[in-house]
Design a binder for these strands. Structure first.
Length: 402
DNA sequence: GTCAATTCACATGAAAGAGACCACGGTCTAGTG
DNA sequence: CTAGACCGTGGTCTCTTTCATGTGAATTGACGA
């Protein structure tokens, strides 16, 4: 229905650039997945026994973002559940959980609760002891003979937050089940993730492993061409646009998602400025717009204390004579700002962590340096590009009502 | 001049507290027959 | 008698604080040449 509506609206708006923009959206599932035949086959052959209701090996999938991991696994599992439905036997359930989604599945409890909810049971979002949730889970699935295939996407994020013990519990759950069987498919962005796991978990979880290599520029081009032909109207794309997009994305470790984003945003930009052609310049604009939006989004959605700290950093780096900023400076400035704004100041310990988090987010670049007798600190550089700073300032001033 | 000890200013860890949520079970209250 | 309102308890989760320990090189100061 929404697709239909979109089409109507688009045609009314005299849409000349896009034919079907949704093709470029991240949640779009394409009909075919180029350059991933090998991986799809591998996944399929590992998961195939589930069709007979047999337990399948736990599978572990690595690969950088935008290499099609999630897509392939979802594709295969969809096909399998389709097959199962055709045969009419109810022997398999596939549950997909994205562990990175905050407030949904980023703790042991919530992941479990999410799984149960997907299975049709109901579990409150909070309030129950974890082991009683486990019992409920067992009760729910062990009623009959079946295979539960749990796909844990971005599993590295989850483990980083909550230790690997829950994976261990999950893999060990099979011994408590009389009828049902659980298999786990873990999807991870980090290639070194497996090394950091507890050896017991590693051996039980990593029965099968699969690596998704990044796409190279040529492959990206093909993917883009395919999608672009569906997404854009004829003759919109200028020469070299696709190639440029692919090149950009290939630089970012072959991230196809990034490439598609780039193309979409470029299209939107062209549309908004009323240009009837999508040329190479637009890609550059789109690239910087994506970067900018990403940063501003992060800044805006940050909690108050984080914003205060960031504001302190920004004020300091605006000051010309401060060519190097250290943690101590930030803390002093931060305290001063808190006093002025009647906010309560956090401890230095906490601020130190906040600074570290900004570093992770890429808003700043922090390097631990030792200055001899002057101690050890982080040397901090603000990474916001010039064209973002003013806007960022505005956002901060607004939300902190300075 | 050389070399180890010292020292600074935090980094980094671990543990525990505060406060917000929430479920569950028991008790109380008001409405109903 | 019963449904719903209203606690109290016990659980999770996030953000912090408190207490402890770690750390890399400039500086110091003792030592020997």
């Amino acid at each position: 229905m929404t697709v239909k509506l979109n089409k109507i609206f688009d045609s009314i708006a005299g849409n000349i650039i896009f034919r079907d923009k949704s093709v470029l959206q991240i949640n779009h599932t394409p009909g075919s997945i180029p350059h991933r035949d090998e991986q799809i086959e591998a996944v399929a052959s590992i998961l195939a026994p589930s069709l007979r209701g047999d337990r399948v090996s736990n599978l572990f999938v690595y690969g950088k973002t935008g290499t099609g991991k999630t897509l392939c696994v979802q594709y295969v599992t969809n096909e399998i559940s389709k097959r199962v439905k055709e045969t009419g036997e109810d022997v398999l359930k596939v549950i997909y959980v994205n562990c990175k989604l905050k407030k949904v599945a980023d703790t042991e409890y919530r992941i479990l609760a999410e799984i149960i909810n997907r299975l049709g049971g109901s579990v409150p979002a909070t309030g129950l002891p974890t082991d009683s949730v486990y019992n409920k889970f067992i009760e729910l699935i062990d009623g009959k003979k079946q295979v539960i295939l749990i796909v844990l996407d971005e599993i590295d994020q989850a483990v980083k937050k909550i230790s690997d013990s829950f994976l261990y519990t999950l893999t060990r759950l099979n011994s408590e089940l009389k009828n049902a069987q659980i298999s786990i498919v873990g999807i991870s962005n980090s290639l070194t993730f497996m090394d950091e796991l507890d050896p017991r978990v590693r051996s039980s979880l990593g029965e099968e492993e699969l690596v998704f290599p990044p796409y190279n520029a040529l492959q990206l081009q093909e993917i883009l061409k395919k999608r672009a032909s569906e997404a854009f109207n004829e003759g919109i794309l200028s020469e070299g646009v696709i190639a440029k997009c692919a090149a950009f994305a290939a630089r970012e470790h072959g991230d196809a998602r990034r490439a598609l984003d780039l193309l979409r945003v470029a299209g939107e930009l062209a549309e908004r400025s009323g240009i009837k052609k999508l040329d190479v310049v637009r890609i550059d604009e789109a690239n910087s717009k994506i970067e900018k939006d990403k940063m501003l989004d992060i800044i805006e959605s940050e909690p108050k204390q984080f914003q205060l700290v960031l504001f302190a950093i920004m004020s300091l780096s605006q000051d010309e004579k401060m060519n190097k900023i250290f943690t101590g400076d930030i803390y002093n400035k931060y305290e001063e700002i808190c006093r002025k704004t009647k906010n309560e100041a956090l401890t230095q310990r906490r601020v130190s962590d906040i600074v570290a988090e900004f570093d992770m987010l890429g808003l700043i670049n922090a390097k631990v340096v030792s200055k001899g007798r002057q101690g050890r600190t982080r040397e901090i550089k603000l990474m916001l590009p010039e064209n973002v700073r003013n806007k960022a300032r505005e956002i901060l001033i607004e939300s902190l009502n300075l």
